[in-house]
Nucleic acid binder design. Sequence first.
DNA 1: TCCTTTATTGATAGTGATTCTCATTATTAT
DNA 2: ATAATAATGAGAATCACTATCAATAAAGGA
Lengths: 149, 149
Amino acid sequence: MPGPRWRGNFKERGHRMTGPRDAILDVVNKKQGHLTADDIFFEVRKSYPGIGIATIYRTLDLFVRMGLVNKFDFGGGKSRYEFTSKEKHHHHLVCKNCGRVVDYDSFLDEETELIKKIEAELNRKHDFKIDSHQLDFYGLCKSCQREVK
Amino acid sequence: MPGPRWRGNFKERGHRMTGPRDAILDVVNKKQGHLTADDIFFEVRKSYPGIGIATIYRTLDLFVRMGLVNKFDFGGGKSRYEFTSKEKHHHHLVCKNCGRVVDYDSFLDEETELIKKIEAELNRKHDFKIDSHQLDFYGLCKSCQREVK
DNA sequence: TCCTTTATTGATAGTGATTCTCATTATTAT
DNA sequence: ATAATAATGAGAATCACTATCAATAAAGGA
């Protein structure tokens, strides 16, 4: 239960720990998958009924800036959020038809090695300070393979 | 000047080659970088003043379906379009502050090899028919490294 | 070249996600 | 407690993109 850690982090940065923030962090922490703001909104309402959608967006944005949550964009017009769990980085498999996103982490060792190499090279060559990356594969999932064209 | 090739492709699929389509393809073909619909809109207006924004979106969508243009989403709420040049696939370096996108194609051989391997594995394991991928690195570009925090 | 069919277009209204505004409320330090 | 001010909720506003629809213009044939 890392709660106290966050609290410390919040205070340091001049932020306050509030009911809505607790509730949102709780949902993002427990629910898995790449949640949309709406997913989170409806879920948080169960434990904090009065919450407004604006607070969801504001809070998620704060969490992203604090590094507690990762924000992804797979196309389709909605941002997706996920609790940051540094010990299991993963990549994505996105269905171009239904939008389903599957995580995978096989090959990660090989990938990680290569990616480190690339990062160093890009850092040097383009003067970028790289801190993250995203590798997504696009295609059709099993059920969409039939139904489409 | 591959114009005639497109024309053939259009006819086959029951599409017509029109002024707006020519103008848009021309811009996407000549201008480089990852253009937003608006970038393209303003540019096409120079050679085809009466064009409407809806036609830009419709046409880009058609081109994407035909494989003439690639559509990307780096977050930030705008889709980006780029002429498909099959001989030089590349990956991206995105500045999280100013949104600038830099292409790179070093390491592509190693990357390609690994990515093929991963695709085959994912295909088998998750029953996905994968047809493309996107690898983006995120960080701060040279000029943004100073100005931020 | 003119005609017919129908894909395409431009204008504009509509949609859906996200952000902004602002008066009210809730936290934190005192 | 109390003051100072960060955070919230409601709703308006914005922004990218899509749908609607009457008018226009390709393409093929006469």
